[in-house]
Simulated scan of single mutants.
Amino acid sequence: MIIRSATSDDAAILTQIYNHEVETGTALWNVQAIDLENRLEFLSNQKAKGNPVLVAEVDGEMAGYATYAAFRPQDGFHLTAEHSIYVRPGFQGQGIGPKLLSALIDKARDNGQHVLVAAIDGANEGSIALHRKLGFAEVGRMPQAGMKFGRWLDLVLLQLQLDDRSAP
């Protein structure tokens, strides 16, 4: 497996992965599918903001991706990022998630981020366990904060402090 930065050539597969999660999962609480243009714009925006989009490849095939962006838009949050990680069906359970997340943590540290936040569906025990294994601590739980597929979803917030700076 290799982990590399995404390029515009990856946009079609990124679209497919995103839409699969929209249609079948609760890692993403959006319900509208996106098109190729959306992912091309996403890649361009992430690059312009200096936010990584990492891709995991297994035998030349994209197995998943991870990225982060500003946690909140206010200036005071500029050293805190919220990340997303998606592994394609057929590649799950092969250790791709931990490797992608570890690489993203390294990128966040290299880019001077102070805190990385995960916002996870409370029923996604596998993702919560993965984050805890990599040092994230649960800092909040919001019952029925969202909805999808006709049911309420709990939001679990986990965070990883990336450095020990005493001041920004």
Rank of each mutant, 00 (worst) to 15 (best):
D9H: 15
D9M: 15
D10M: 13
A11D: 04
I13A: 08
I13H: 05
I13Y: 05
I13K: 14
Y18T: 07
N19R: 03
N19Y: 07
H20L: 02
E23P: 04
T26S: 10
T26C: 08
W29M: 05
W29D: 00
N30Y: 13
L36K: 14
L40V: 06
E41H: 15
L43H: 07
S44Q: 14
K49S: 13
K49V: 09
N51W: 12
L54V: 09
V55N: 03
E57G: 09
D59N: 09
E61L: 15
M62A: 07
A63G: 02
G64L: 00
R72L: 11
P73Q: 09
D75Q: 11
G76A: 14
F77I: 08
L79C: 09
R88V: 03
R88S: 06
G90W: 05
G90A: 08
F91E: 00
F91P: 00
I96V: 12
G97Q: 04
P98M: 01
P98F: 01
K99T: 10
L100D: 03
K107E: 09
R109H: 01
N111I: 01
A118F: 01
A118S: 14
I128N: 03
K133E: 05
L134F: 01
G135K: 00
G140K: 12
M142T: 11
M142S: 11
R151E: 08
R151N: 08
L153Q: 09
L153E: 03
D154C: 03
L155G: 07
L158K: 10
D163K: 06
D164Q: 12
